[in-house]
Structures are given as C-alpha cells and as structure tokens.
Design a protein around this nucleic acid. Structure first.
Lengths: 105, 105
DNA sequence: AATCAACTTTCCTAGCAGGAAAGTACACAA
DNA sequence: TTGTGTACTTTCCTGCTAGGAAAGTTGATT
C-alpha cells in the first residue's frame, strides 16, 4: 500500500469512525454513535463529509417500521484508510516505533 | 505503554515534528524547518506550543557568533508520543479485527 | 391532527493553522 | 553610534473545522 496522508481521515473522530467502519460490513447509525460517543449531529455531519468524499456509502431503509441508516466503507474508502495508516506508519517509523505490529503482506 | 490519544500531538504538523524529535537528541531549528518544509513562523509557533505543554525543551545559544535554537523532546514528551502512538495502534487494530457482528439484519 | 423516532440541517461560537509582515536580540561593520 | 544582517518571534488577519443546541424532515402510529 502506497503511503498517503489523508487529512480527511486524520481528524480524530473520523479516524476512529473510519477505522471502525473498516472492521465491519454495514454498520448502523446508532452503533457508530454509541461506539464513538458522538452526538447525532456530529456523527451525521461526519458521515456526510465522508460520503461526499466517496469514502462511505449510506443506505437508508425502514426496518420494523423505523428508519434505519446503515453505512459502509467503499473500496476507495478502504484504500484511503490503508494509505493513511501506511503514512502514519512511515511517520512514526522515523522515531523507531510502529503503528502496525508487523506488516502482513 | 498506556494508550493515550493526545490531541496536541495528533495535529499533522506536530505529529511529524514530534516524531522527528523522538528520533534525535538535540535538533536545530533549521534542520526541523527544512525537514518538515515549514515556514519559520509556523515552526516557531508549534515549538512554543510544545514547550508550553512541557513536551520540548528549547535551548538558545550563540555558535559561530550566530544565534542558534536547538530543541529536544523532554521525558514527558517522549512519553506522550509513545502513548499517542499506542492509542493509534489501538484504533487501527480495530480495523484488523473484522470480528464485529454484522449490523444489518 | 398530534406525536414519535431517527436522523439532518442550520445557526452560532470557539479554536487552530498558516502566511505576511513587523518586531526583537545580538554581532559586526564603519 | 548608527546601520545592516541573521535567526528567529510575535502580531495580525483570514480561512477552515469541530461541535452543541435546536429547529426541521420524513414516514408511521394513534
């Protein structure tokens, strides 16, 4: 993976958000909000930002007659995240530390 | 090392700066400015911020009859950096787990 | 029609980042 | 003593971003 520092992903809340999304398939709004301890409005705005960047896909549906918003990292989103982690890796490697245990692959 | 996300260190330029300092003993102003491609004023302000946090020690002296500013990470600075990297590891590790429940029924 | 759930958008404020330019400290030249 | 130069430092100003509060939206329920 080519290192590529991504300012959009780097912001604290989005880094956690994207990382969480990278670990799941579709994740629900509530799950994300509670996992990250964010307010509805903050999460909603971050998701819109990520969607506009093409990093997430947002799907709205009605389940059990309630609206449900689900989110998923797109392929470009996964790639940007991996690239950003590689960039972080590169930065901290200078100090002799590592963000990743040991590169697998 | 206890993971501890540090907003002060997380900002892009400071992350690079602290990482660079973590790898050196005393580093000179010019070296940092050129390595990070920052303007004098931007670097000066970031160093002041880090100094106020107790993360760096700044030493001014005259060498070859020219003013010279040297900077070094303090012990708390090293610790905060290591803690922050540990926090990043923790965040990124979530993306490698891939064992969270599928959220959409 | 009123209300509710689950978001979304708007409004507002506070904070940080960076460039430009003015300011400071000390040394040296004249 | 005055002027110049180096090496930063501080101030001024602009622009971007984040987040909470609260109002708005949509479709379902009563």
């Amino acid at each position: 993976m080519t290192p590529r520092f991504d300012e959009l992903i780097h912001a604290p809340t989005r880094l956690s958000l994207v990382s969480l999304l990278a670990a799941t398939d579709w994740a629900e709004f509530k799950f994300l909000r509670d996992s990250l301890a964010m307010s509805d409005s903050a999460l909603s705005k971050q998701l819109t930002t990520l969607e506009e960047a093409g990093y997430v896909e947002i799907r709205k549906s009605f389940i059990a007659k309630r609206p449900r918003t689900s989110v998923k990292l797109t392929a470009p989103g996964h790639e940007a995240f991996a690239g950003h982690v590689a960039a972080l890796q590169e930065i901290v490697a200078r100090a002799g530390l590592a963000v990743l245990p040991d590169q697998v692959g």
